[in-house]
């Protein structure tokens, strides 16, 4: 009895909101995004193993393997270190990013074949990550300052009631004109994202699957599927394992530590 009634109320509210002035939608959008960010704050650090499965339009596929160490920065963007394991010829390459809410992210790559670290000095972040359908900007840490938000509507997704938000990147170097994000209203988890390219055509859709909860609070999807509507290619990002509280410090995410990362 309680649930359907609640749902109806929310739906009604949603309808009312949709009819309200756009300024309210902007405020509500930001409010939802703030709640989303708040619910994913405080996880500290994590270490995960990932497999990327790339598929072309003909269905042929190939794999990439990597590990990612992540470190939460309370007043800045997160820091992340990705170590590549496969393919073999890039094994040991380590990609360090310090993301920033407003400034450009810092990126370094340690190349074992040169035994040297190179800084990638570019504002580009919309190209394919390891030739997959994910772009660097799809994977970097979620910062409120990177987008302008607008609440669009309520809608069911994956059998849950979701908010649909419009997120418009503030960076002119983004590859997208806008994105539409579906967040479930219970846990504020991203369920689906539609990416629109610069000419406002639907480019890609990201769907999240198999959410699991960690530390009784933080939800992580164990499968993310990015489908490119224009080329028919797709990529699965599979989370093999994830651990929190690994005891790493900020020093482990320093440029000078890159060469030690294995």
């Amino acid at each position: 009895m309680y649930k359907p009634l609640c749902r109806t109320t929310v739906l009604l509210c949603g309808l009312l909101l949709a009819a309200a002035a756009p300024a309210d939608d902007v405020a509500k959008g930001l409010q939802i995004a703030q709640e989303q960010k708040a619910r994913d704050t405080g996880w500290g650090d994590s270490e995960s193993e990932l497999i990327m499965v790339l598929r072309n339009a003909a269905g042929q596929q190939t794999e990439r393997r990597m590990r990612t160490l992540a470190f939460e920065m309370p007043d800045d963007g997160d820091k992340a270190l990705t170590i590549f394991d496969e393919p073999r010829d890039v094994r040991g390459s380590a990609f360090l990013t310090h993301s920033h809410p407003t400034a450009e992210d810092d990126q370094w790559l340690y190349l074992p074949s040169l035994r040297r670290t190179r800084r990638i000095a570019t504002r580009n972040k919309s190209g394919p990550f390891m030739a997959s359908e994910f772009a660097y900007e799809d994977m970097t840490s979620f910062e409120l300052e990177k987008f302008a938000f607008r609440y669009l509507r309520d809608e069911n997704c994956n059998d849950q009631l979701c908010f649909v938000l419009e997120q418009t990147p503030t960076d002119s170097f983004s590859g997208y004109s806008t994105t539409h994000v579906w967040l479930d209203q219970q846990h504020y988890r991203v369920q689906k994202v539609d990416y629109y390219d610069r000419k406002n055509s639907l480019l890609k859709t990201l769907t999240m699957h198999d959410y699991q909860q960690y530390l009784d609070k933080y939800w992580r999807p164990h499968k993310m599927t990015m489908h490119n509507h224009q080329t028919g290619k797709s990529t699965d990002l599979l989370l093999q394992s994830i651990r929190f509280g690994t005891g790493r410090t900020e020093a482990d995410f320093d440029v000078n530590a890159l060469e030690r990362a294995r």
């Binding site: 390459s93 790559l109 394919p128 660097y136």
Partner: peptide, 10 residues
């Protein structure tokens, strides 16, 4: 790998 990480969309 490095080059691909620094290219823009498309």
């Amino acid at each position: 790998l490095m080059y691909e990480m620094s290219l823009p969309f498309g």
